Simulated scan of single mutants.
Amino acid sequence: MEWRKCYLDVMLVPLGFLILMGYHLYLWHKVRTQPLTTIVGTNSRGRSFWVSAMMKDNDKKNILAVQTLRNMIMGSTLMATTSILLCAGMAAVISSTYSIKKPLSDAVYGAHGEFMVALKYVTLLTIFLFSFFCHSLSIRFINQVNILINTPQDPTAIVTPEYVSELLEKGFVLNTVGNRLFHAGLPLLLWIFGPVLVFLCCVTMVPVLYNLDFVFRSGKGKNIDVDGSNNV
């Protein structure tokens, strides 16, 4: 009897997230092998050039560098604040004595017992906590870049543009992971209303993310190599 109530949750929820994980594994493979065909790889290459340009002409561009990094920190701070507020809301719901499953029990497909409802909210809480953790670390790395990018350059300088670019890249990778975890909270939030919506949301997110993550360049007869050169 219990299996009949939760078989949709056991089948559709893992299947939906396996589809999302498969897409991100494909994206990771493309970023490693053909970075300039993806937004992540293209932006990473552009950030390394930006750091080199800022540090090379630091006397004229130091204010521009600080303001740009400040905007990045503000974005990460907003996401971290939103994540921890959602965590507080999830914790309040979990610790509440009010049984939230009662008004939803007739409208939810799949299992909606006490254990399943608790599992849904605990999973949401965990996802948002990890999102907050990633955004917090991102702020830490970008703050370091904010100081080091104005370091005076000399032939014996320990702080090189390559080192600063590496720190900035770590910050942006953590920011991207935090954003993806935050987005994963959407299908989990829909899990409250049943596993069917989770599966449909995961399937819908794949083409949306594909159009946001990959570069579609116009031009006939041009192929872009991994090193960034154009071949006709």
Rank of each mutant, 00 (worst) to 15 (best):
W3E: 13
K5H: 06
L8A: 12
V13W: 01
F17T: 07
L18R: 05
I19T: 07
H24Y: 07
L25G: 07
L25P: 03
K30Y: 08
T33I: 07
P35C: 05
T38A: 05
I39N: 06
T42D: 04
N43W: 03
F49R: 04
M54T: 00
D57F: 04
N62G: 00
R70W: 10
N71I: 00
M74G: 02
T77W: 06
T77C: 13
L78F: 15
T81L: 13
S83E: 11
I84M: 12
L86F: 14
C87M: 13
G89R: 11
S96K: 08
T97P: 02
S99R: 03
I100Q: 00
K102H: 02
L104N: 03
S105I: 10
D106L: 02
D106K: 01
V108R: 13
E114M: 07
L124C: 15
L125F: 14
T126Q: 11
S131M: 03
F133P: 03
C134V: 01
H135M: 14
S136A: 14
S136P: 02
F141E: 10
Q144I: 08
Q144P: 00
I147Q: 14
I147T: 15
L148C: 02
I149S: 08
D154N: 15
I158S: 14
I158V: 15
E162F: 04
G171A: 09
V177W: 04
L181W: 06
F182K: 01
H183I: 10
L186P: 00
P187R: 00
L188N: 05
L190F: 14
V203G: 07
V206N: 05
V206M: 06
P207K: 09
Y210M: 13
L212P: 01
F214Q: 09
F214I: 12
V215E: 12
R217W: 07
K220M: 08
I224A: 08
D225N: 13
S229M: 04
N230E: 13
N231T: 13
